[in-house]
Amino acid sequence: MSDVVLHLLTIVGVLAAALTIAAGLIWGERRLLALWQDRYGPNRVGPFGLLQVVADIIKIFTKEDWIPPFADRAVFVLAPGIVFAAGLMVFAILPVTPGIAVVRLNVGVLYFLAISSLGAYGVVLAGWSSSSKYSLLGGMRAAAQVLTYEVFMGLSLMGVVMIAGSFDLGRIVEAQKNLWFCVPQFFGLLVFFMAGLAEAHRSPFDLPESDSELVAGYHSEYSGMKFGMFFVGEYLSITVISALIATLFFGGWLGPVLPPVVWFMLKTFVFIGGFILMRATLPRPRYDQLMALGWKLLLPLTLLNLLITGAIVLAAR
């Protein structure tokens, strides 16, 4: 009985933490970007502007939620839900500490890859159902981009899996007791980070929304809370990818002195910061450059990485 209660508490806790972090990022991203641009960012509502999050939430809930008359209603409503849900579902497998995880799947990595591809559906459907040329273009781009980078993302993780000998994220963390995988799998980390940017369609790889050419891409026609779900869904993806980088390459909860939860959170926040730093620094490439980068650089790189890792693992056996 207490097992069930504990389990439920874990679920609620992870869910609450994920949503809080995602919502907090609304404020956090703006503050960080401002910091790097020598500005203040939101600093008027509450201490350090923290209550800006509350203001934004109130605003987004009370805004007119407009469904264009030319949209495919059912799909239009469903799409942001898919994005949002797919973002949340990955949190289930994250091993926050040896004890805290919603579920310990022995195919955790595969599960993550599967669910994150599901998120692409939301974006494609949103673009399609809006019946607007900008949205459709955004949706198409999202589909192609996510499919492409899915490949490298999967491949880049295989090195980690090979060394750890398991798909279970907990086991992978434990395998890093002596050496974090960021060292032997440096190229894997690099590719995974870039693929993560593309998966979350974060700038510089935010071509599906690229506001300067497609207005707002697949969510041009969205407003109110439906737009809010896309918005928060994006922050959820950032959080998930950051947490996974911490888990897969930087030893997850492992670390001296401080308790494991703190280590895990700390690492995750650093990588979230990294994501925002990328946005603050890099301009958006052209669409063909994005695809070329994927197929011409990242694919050979991952394959090479895989080959060498495989060879070393074989040799070490």
């Binding site: 401002a34 790097w36 641009q37 500005r39 730093l277």
Partner: peptide, 15 residues
């Protein structure tokens, strides 16, 4: 570029 942006963490704000 990343380094330059990061270095701005410690610059004075102009607002």
């Amino acid at each position: 570029g990343i380094w330059v942006i990061l270095s701005h963490t410690f610059r004075r704000r102009v607002t």
